Simulated scan of single mutants.
Amino acid sequence: MNVDVVIGEILTLSIMAFALGMDAFSVGLGIGMTKLTRKQYGQISVLIGLFHVIMPLGGMVAGQFLSDTLGVLATYMSSALLLVLGIQMISASFNKNGKRVISPTCFNLLVFAVGVSLDSFSVGLSLGLYGTKPILTISLFGLFSMVLTWAGLLLGKKVQSWLGAYSQALGGTILLSFGIKLLLTV
């Protein structure tokens, strides 16, 4: 395999992982404005990172199965999922009433981690349809979401909540652009 192709795939997946992690960052930013212990910062970050591994992996398995049976149509489906997800994230950033509020209890954190990583399932499905490398993809998704959640939690102490909406819109824009790029490669 060509080194340039591998580097390009790593770069592309890193940008997508960053885009998905921006949702976790924005929510972490809001949660970081509450009083949390250092241990809770770590628990929240690792839990979200773990679900950003589990959810896209499940989506990729389903996507690879569909890709084998659907062929070129799978690429169109993949692109459509990214476009819809990007539009959804952008529109959600303008919805001021849709803020999620959780308290840092065990059950709430679990529900929170699943909720924040649901978009990763859709992206994993898209990537499975496209045929990316699962281990590389989920490793990058987990790492980026964990680090961005941690950064959001820490930064949440220092900034106002307006930044969260902008970061979610940025993440949605990146996913939208990858959906368009995928459509243009067919």
Rank of each mutant, 00 (worst) to 15 (best):
Y41N: 14
E9A: 01
P56T: 00
I7R: 03
R100L: 00
S145T: 13
Q168N: 08
L129Q: 02
Q160F: 08
Q88S: 15
S161R: 07
S167C: 09
P104R: 00
G8M: 05
T132H: 09
G156V: 02
S78K: 02
S117W: 03
S117N: 04
T37P: 11
L70G: 14
L83S: 08
L13W: 00
M77R: 09
F107W: 10
S167K: 01
L170W: 05
F94L: 09
V159Q: 10
F144K: 11
K96I: 12
K99R: 08
G32M: 02
A17N: 04
F141H: 08
V101E: 04
A17C: 08
G179F: 05
G42Q: 12
N95W: 03
M60R: 05
H52F: 03
A169D: 03
K39E: 15
A113K: 06
M55W: 11
T69L: 10
S93Q: 07
K157E: 15
G21M: 08
T185G: 08
T149I: 07
L110P: 00
V53I: 13
L29R: 05
C106K: 13
L183G: 10
I135F: 13
G152I: 00
L36C: 10
A80N: 02
L20W: 02
F18T: 13
A24S: 14
I15S: 05
I15F: 03
K99A: 09
V147F: 06
A113R: 12
L82A: 04
L154W: 04
S161P: 07
C106I: 15
I135M: 15
V147G: 00
